[in-house]
Amino acid sequence: MTSADPVLLLGEQRLRAGARARRRVVSPVIWLAFAVMAGVLLMALFGALLAPQSPSAQHLAIVDAPPSGAHWLGTDALGRDVLSRVIAGARTAFFGPLVIAAASFVLGNLLGLLAGYRGGLADAVIMRWVDFMWSLPSLVILVVVAGTVGSSYWLAVAVLIVLTVPFDTRVIRGATLEQVPRPYVEAAKTLGVPRWKIMLFHIWPNVSPVAVANTCLVFAGSLVTLAGLEFLGLGLPPGIPDWGLMLSQNEALLFTNPLATIAPGAMIVLTAIAMNLIGDWLYELLTSRGAGR
């Protein structure tokens, strides 16, 4: 008799889930995610070469044109090929978030290790700062910075690094705290290994899976935030191909060439999903908690 009892049902499912996790087969979805990221990386590095036409070439006689043989995604308000601009737009979508992810990886890990391992005053100060920064709306701060200091892509990247480090710090601190009570740490301390070496060479390798997985999420989040800033018109000058900027500039073309808006929007979502999926997958792969999720 099938029990509708949720608790019993869960018990059965738990056994099955555990068995599944142990098999460690990489699902096709993850392969797809990696393929997407590879594609975006290629477009970011070689955009101008891959694009069928120059992203800035204007064809003012055929503005706002729907898709055609010459322009697979049509043209925008200046007659530029939308497909080429989408490909070229991968550059600003990729490199800013890459820098942000890398910088906050380094800084976040250092601060997280420090806070988690040393504890005491360092931890208190760092966590106060993290608590304060953690729930700040980063886009609003970017908007205010753009409105006062001036709108610039790399300035936005710099500000985002400052805003993202607390997030990394918190995650790494948590992971470090879990490692600290472990026997190997005690052993290293007894052997007289200097503190910084314990943090970097003993603890960090065990924390790194979380760190790497987290970085993927940071990448996806920064991509989305930067695109949002471009959407608002603050952050890049008008001519540069950029997915967020294209989404807002081409909103006026929704009736003549909707693809000019749909394509860049889809690219943002696709890239973010791919990175989020990879991050999640890495996390489950590299930690023992994979069975429970």
Binding site: Q58, G233, G239
Partner: peptide
């Protein structure tokens, strides 16, 4: 200089080209 509104950026980009 380009005013950041309306069609000014578009025309200015066309002139630039």
């Amino acid at each position: 200089s380009v005013e950041n509104a309306g069609s000014y950026p578009n025309v200015s980009q066309a002139i630039q080209a």
